[in-house]
Amino acid sequence: MLQSLGQNLVFGLLVGALYGLVALGLSLIFGVTKFLNVAHGELVMFGGYASFYAFSMLGLDPFLSIPLTIIILFVLGAILYRLVFSRTIKLPEESKIKNTLLVAFGLSVIFQNLALRFFTADERGITTSYFSQAFTLGGVRFPLPKVAILVVTVIFLIILQLILKKTYTGKAIRATTQNWEAASLMGIDIHKVYLLSFAMGAALAGVAGTLVAVNYSIQPSMGLGWTMKALIVMVLGGLGNIPGTIIGGLILGLTESTTSFFISSNYREVAGLVLFLLVLIFRPQGLFGSKEA
């Protein structure tokens, strides 16, 4: 009993790290641009397909193809920003959120149908020789692909934090997030910052897509589910709060796993949504968000 509870908690944490990573890109984009990109799940899907085709056609290991996936999604993000989202940038914050929500919803439908047309409706996944391996610690199994989630998430969290804290570009992103007017008075090209943040957020979605393809399966309609998870996590962690987003992901993972352990796995998703509502009612700034941010 105790052992299987431990197993559940570990799985919850590992899956939660993936939720955090999916939400990380969404949160970065929202924090900087105030775009609510509900097509984020479709970007995760494209990332999944990128690593799937790199694996099946080029024979690239999914973890080695991550840089390639990042480049593809980064460029896709930049194009999307330029062609579509940049047109809403001058709107006041509230109508920007509403308009991008609508635009992104439309995009998600387009992306799903494009995926259906070009990738077919077949479920895909990536399986390599070492994926069935696991190690055991204190009676709890740690399957390698799930452990990889945590490792990859932590790596990208650190990379993102280093970019934001140490580089001039990262400081420009943070400055624009805090006050875009003051940022442009510093000589920061805020349109470049918006483009870059959007592209980086898309690239992070791509990385998450790789992990989904490795651990679960991918198919054209998978996006909405991941967008929902990312929205829940983003609200849990506090809008635009980067480390909070990862912790929010872990909390959602743990909530789901304990729910399926103590109640029933049928209620997994419900537990996440209940958590979402509770946070919105009692702590709308998020568990780790400050009112100012």
Partner: peptide, 23 residues
């Protein structure tokens, strides 16, 4: 210098000054 200063409150004093030298 904008009205009210509009400093970046979430950053250190030094980071604020560094951003001033962005160009």
């Amino acid at each position: 210098v904008p009205e009210g200063g509009k400093i970046f409150t979430g950053m250190s004093v030094l980071e604020n000054l560094e951003l001033g030298a962005f160009v």
